[in-house]
């Protein structure tokens, strides 16, 4: 091998090259350029064509609800996921099995029927039961908007997925780490918070970012409850004007813009994390 020349060309067709240098057009991220081009083209349409601009002005105000619902669902799911993920690893037989049941149960049901079940059956029944007491005691009633009902459902679902992420992350830390912590006299809780969790975060953060993007997209399901987020506004615009092309064009554009810039941010964050790790290890 060592005596062979660095580049071996065998004819134009089926050329076999022995080299670690690939030409620039082979490594260039064409996909990224294509996506940017498509987004620019879409923006151009919206800016210059009257019907698209009309659709934009009617749909874009839904951004606020899309973003707040995403943030709310993600925050609640994060808390549920952390508790349920650690619950699955608990020594306590009850919390272990409660957590496991929750995760398996939720993961087995598609989001759409679960949203209907929670919003139209679970929440009304629970609030009715609660309110009969609250009203009698305090003269006050507890109400949950459809937006919150759907957001809570999303959080319940993603909480189950995140529980698996947390469990996997914690289990990815070698047992010798907690043994070292415990042998120094740290309590179980101190070892978890100071030794295990900080190391688990490296494995946890990237998939959590993916779930954030997934939640953002799934807030479109809030539309089935009539919540005026982007998708619902797109549906209303299209149905009332019969401009389906323009309506869903704008809806897709907004989601693409959000998800693509988020995944770009995420990959930058991941790159920084691996660079930090190289510095440390």
């Amino acid at each position: 091998m060592a005596t062979e020349p660095r580049r071996v060309q065998r004819g134009r067709r089926g050329a076999t090259r022995v080299t670690d240098e690939r030409p620039w057009w082979d490594t260039f991220p064409w996909w990224g350029a294509i996506i940017v081009a498509i987004l620019l083209w879409m923006a151009w349409q919206i800016l210059t064509k009257e019907n698209y601009e009309l659709a934009w002005t009617r749909i874009a105000p839904g951004l606020r609800l899309t973003i707040t619902s995403t943030l709310q669902a993600f925050t609640i799911a994060l808390i549920i996921g952390m508790v349920a993920g650690m619950g699955q690893l608990s020594r306590n037989v009850v919390s272990r099995n409660v957590a496991r049941t929750y995760v398996e149960f939720i993961r087995g049901i598609p989001i759409l029927p679960l949203i209907f079940t929670v919003a139209l059956i679970v929440v009304p029944e629970v609030t009715d039961a609660l309110n009969s007491r609250l009203d009698a005691w305090f003269g006050w009633e507890f109400k949950l908007s459809f937006q919150m009902r759907a957001t809570v459902t999303l959080a319940l679902i993603y909480g189950a997925y995140m529980a698996e992420i947390f469990r996997g992350g914690i289990q990815s830390v070698p047992p010798g780490q907690s043994e070292a912590g415990r042998s120094l006299g740290l309590t179980r809780r101190q070892t978890m918070s100071s030794v295990v969790l900080p190391q688990a975060m490296r494995a946890i953060i990237p998939p959590l970012g993916n779930d954030f993007i997934a939640i953002l997209k799934d807030t479109s399901l809030l539309s089935v409850l009539g919540v005026l987020e982007i998708t619902q506004r797109g549906r209303q615009f299209s149905a009332s004007t019969f401009k389906f092309r323009e309506g869903y064009f704008v809806v897709s554009f907004i989601y693409l813009l959000l998800t693509l810039s988020l995944s770009l941010l995420l990959s930058l964050l991941e790159r920084r994390m691996t660079r930090d790790r190289k510095g440390q290890r």
Partner: peptide, 25 residues
């Protein structure tokens, strides 16, 4: 206790490794 695999905490500096339990325990 000293382990075969050292089991230092990789996310902490040497000094942080040594001070963690002193401070908490």
């Amino acid at each position: 206790m000293v382990f075969q695999q050292f089991n230092l905490f990789p996310h902490l500096t040497v000094m942080e490794n040594i001070t963690l339990a002193q401070r908490k325990v």
